[in-house]
Simulated assay, not measured.
Amino acid sequence: MTAQGVFISFEGIDGSGKSTQARLLAEHLRGLGHQIVLTREPGGSPGAEEIRRLVLEGDPNRWSAETEILLFTAARRDHLERTITPALEAGKTVICDRFADSTRMYQGLSRGDLRAVVDKLHALMIKQEPDLTILIDMDPGTGLSRALSRGTGEERFESFGESLQQKMRQGFLDLAAEFNERFTTIDGNREIDVVASAVQQIVAERFP
């Protein structure tokens, strides 16, 4: 039988560089001969990508926080069924740009005290946590400037402004303390290659 794969997620505020670091880690591990599935949330499967367009584009007040929680959970369930679980069962390493921790923050914390709702839905419908979560910690102002400069058309959450990013940064740090056995926090205010080396070292130490 094939050994169960490894599930690594990247978290952080918008513009923190987590997407870049997820890609660089995937390239590094592929170079070492590992089978890698690089994916993202919301998205990562055909159905989830359709939901991604609903939640990341359009007016900031398009959805209530409660509706967003349901949409993100639906996307995550499809992603899990069609991408993540099959890859892990095949012994592959899954590297995911955001997972449930982002919903705990952006919907559970930022727009009301809905963390308990997020956790209940997660326990009911998802029942999966990463083996390792790498938090790329970034100055909120710098991260927001980076995120807005991308011009992808998916800036719905960035449009809430720097105050949300500040709240999210502290929320992610608190989450890292809450789940300290799963989380590792890295200073993302450094050069990309320096951050990438730190990520590689953490992964090598955690999964020798």
Rank of each mutant, 00 (worst) to 15 (best):
R169K: 15
Q166Y: 04
G143M: 01
P130C: 12
K167E: 15
D119V: 01
E155N: 01
S149G: 11
R156Q: 02
G161A: 10
F160V: 02
E155T: 05
G151S: 05
Q128D: 03
T152A: 00
F157M: 15
R115K: 05
Q165L: 14
V117P: 00
D139A: 10
E129S: 13
Q128F: 01
F160N: 06
E162C: 05
L124I: 09
R146A: 07
Q165T: 06
E129N: 09
R169G: 05
K127Y: 00
D139I: 09
S163E: 14
V117H: 05
L144I: 02
L124W: 14
S159I: 00
T133E: 11
M125I: 13
Q170Y: 10
F160S: 03
D139E: 12
R156F: 09
S163I: 11
S149M: 03
Q128H: 09
K167T: 15
A147D: 08
K167I: 11
R156Y: 02
E162K: 13
E158W: 03
H122F: 11
Q128Y: 08
S159H: 12
D139S: 09
L164M: 13
G171V: 11
G153N: 03
E154W: 07
T152E: 04
L144P: 01
R146D: 02
M125P: 00
L144T: 05
L135Q: 09
G161D: 07
M125T: 09
F160Y: 14
P130K: 13
L148T: 07
R115H: 00
S163C: 02
T152Q: 01
L148R: 12
F160Q: 12
H122M: 04
L164I: 13
D131F: 11
L164C: 03
L135K: 10
D131R: 08
A147G: 10
F172M: 10
M125D: 07
M168S: 10
E158S: 13
I126Q: 07
D119K: 01
F172H: 15
S149Y: 05
K120G: 08
M168C: 14
Q165A: 10
A123H: 04
E155P: 04
T152D: 06
A116Q: 14
S145P: 00
V117N: 04
P130L: 03
L148V: 07
K167R: 15
L144F: 07
G151N: 08
G161W: 09
G161F: 11
E162S: 05
E162I: 15
G151F: 03
E162A: 05
D137W: 05
E154G: 01
P130F: 11
G141F: 00
F160W: 13
Q166N: 13
A123G: 14
M125H: 12
R169E: 03
